[in-house]
Amino acid sequence: MCLGIPGQIIAISDPARQMGLAEISGVRREVSLAPVADRPLDRLVGEWVLIHVGFAMAVIDAAEAAATLEALRELGEAQEALDQMAEGDRALAASPAPAEGAA
């Protein structure tokens, strides 16, 4: 449910109504900043937010996003190491490839 997409706040358009201008891949729309207005509005300019039905619902945490991607990168390396080990042991195990199962 609930289509939500990241956009960047580029200006505060109506401070009284807590409205700001968000840019999503070059498309602009005025959005309500109310859900993330628990901080001074001008501090939101430049922030990336998650937008749902015209409301900025959350400020995206750049450090958490980077941590998730880093974990995935490490997982990739670990898998590669496992693959190399598996190759060495090929005589012992005949493990099926993952992508071929559900044709």
Binding site: P6, W48, I60, L69, L72, L75, G76, A78, Q79
Partner: peptide, 26 residues
Amino acid sequence: MRYVEEFRDPTKARALLKAIARSAET
């Protein structure tokens, strides 16, 4: 698109799919 494209990376997906397969086998 920031915070979108990075999370659609097919290379990282392959590693995840392998790890899922290993777990499922286990």
